[in-house]
């Protein structure tokens, strides 16, 4: 599933980060920020208007991602 579809506080692991355009600077930056296969992620909070942006915990850092950005990240739930 996509990170943008993940519910709050459900632990998940990243499978891939997809390129939407070629090259895709946003996906590139996501990888530079540590969004790579095997990393654990969690949705910490959703923005007050339409749940956008989302607050994502990865490693020891929290990033605010817009839904279009989070949709580039494919994840798998632990359970």
């Amino acid at each position: 599933m996509r990170l943008s579809d993940l519910s709050r506080d459900v632990p998940a692991v990243i499978v891939t980060v997809d390129d939407v355009t070629r090259p895709d600077p946003i996906s590139g930056r996501l990888r530079d920020l540590g969004f790579v296969a095997g990393e654990a992620v969690r949705v910490v909070a959703n923005g007050p208007f339409g749940g956008d942006p989302m607050l994502i915990q990865i490693g020891f850092t929290q990033f605010a991602l817009r839904r279009a950005e989070a949709a580039r990240v494919q994840v798998e739930c632990d359970a």
Binding site: T21, L33, A64, R66
Partner: peptide, 10 residues
Amino acid sequence: HTEQSLLMEL
């Protein structure tokens, strides 16, 4: 018209 990103660390 390329997409603008947020990608903001809190």
